[in-house]
Amino acid sequence: MAQLSDMATLIRSKNAGPFVLTFDIMFDGEAAYRKVVNSGAITAARFADLYGVPANLVKVFFHDRARAIKVTMPRRVSSGAPADTDVYGCQQHGPICNLEIPDA
C-alpha cells in the first residue's frame, strides 16, 4: 500500500474555465502508471465523494501515451464567487495526494 503522491511525479488541480475543476495526475514510468490505473483507486465515485459533486458529472480519463490520468468535474462554486475558497482551483488536489493505492 502506497500513497498516490509517492508514485506520481505531478499531481495538480486547476480551473478548466470558471465552472470546471480538473485534476492531472502524471507519471514518469509505465510501471507506476499501470499500477495506479490497475488498482482501481481512481474512480468517478471516489472523486465525487471527496469533493461533494454528483458522480455522473465526474469524468475520468486515462491517457496512456502521456502516462497521465485526468479527472474533471463541475466546481461546486464558480471561481471567485462570494463563497469560493480557491479562485484558481489550484490547491484542491491535496486529498488526492493522500489516496491509498492498494497493491493490485
Binding site: K14, T22, M26, R65, A66, A68
Partner: peptide, 16 residues
Amino acid sequence: PQSVMAHTLYENGDPF
C-alpha cells in the same frame, strides 16, 4: 516530450 504532453492537458477538461 513529457513536458509538452503535460502542457496539452493543462487547464483543459478533456485531455484528447
